[in-house]
Amino acid sequence: MTRLNRIGIALAAVVGLLVLTAGPALADNSMSVAAPGEAGIGDIVPVLVSVTEDGSPVTGVVVVLRRNATFAGVSGYVEIARATTSDEGAADLSYVQRGAAQTSELRVEVLDFDVAQLDFAVTSVGEAEQIFEPEVGLNLPGLGGWMLIALIGGLWTIILSTVLRLIVVSTDGDESSTGVPPRRRLLPFVLSGMVGLIAIVLVTVLVRNPATHANLDGPGESDRVPHSHLAEITPFNGPGLDEAYVELTGDALVDGARAFFGLGCASCHGLDAESGVVGGDIDSVVRDGFDEFLSAVRKGPEGMPKYTADAFSEEELIAIHTYLATVDGE
């Protein structure tokens, strides 16, 4: 609990008390809310609501706190707390300040009770600290890569020392011998070199250790082509992705949708023809009319395969064009 919260609670208590004592003087149904004006991200924000009817507390009505939010093109007031009023007509709607917007636009509503909803706002203050961290686990100090590096490095140092001792073997007996066998020094050096090299490689591997909780590199060439940016969310209502063969029914809209998904157009151009993993937005081609559309399909611009009449018949393409033009027009 931050100091802010304590102040908030005190404030709320005072306001609540005022509301309760002043209750009988007020006429009709009314609702009052006590909440701090600002809070830090992640703090519990105390919101106390009291509901009165002709000055007397209302018991057992459901009070809901909602926050104005937008995500992925969908917006609305989302419920963040719900409570039933007590004997004193008070409800505790405390919530956690999480919203990304600087100001949380909040709304209190009483369900099945004739009182106007009440809007207020709580401004986020302080540092925007990350609440959720994707990393979990324990880090025991000293246990880890450096210990392994010391272990492997130590082992290989000992191995290297045994091989280096072969150099001593190969150089011993110089003076004593009459006919020194040739090539005797080659192997110890090759072996020492090998051991040294492998040791360096292994330790290097350990030091270089890639991060697995890594940020991705900045947007590169391999990012998705002009992205499937759905301005507004259109819940998928295609007639079915499972139909590999299209039997035309005569209804251009139905046939077109079936063909668009069944023949695989949607694989590239996205479920709503506004581009997917591969293909681009085809709205403009559709708008230019059927002839343009037909020639684009047959010619295959920008890396798209040329689809001959064997692949897609003209009837199918007419249906697809009709369907896309309708969808686009909506």
Partner: peptide
């Protein structure tokens, strides 16, 4: 075998050096 034998002549110094290496490796 000349290459592999690294000039082994069985001298005391060689015995000592090799013995030490073998001793280290067999424990390691």
């Amino acid at each position: 075998y000349s290459t592999l034998a690294v000039g082994w002549r069985g001298s005391p110094g060689q015995h000592r050096a090799l013995g030490k290496s073998i001793g280290v490796m067999m424990v390691l």
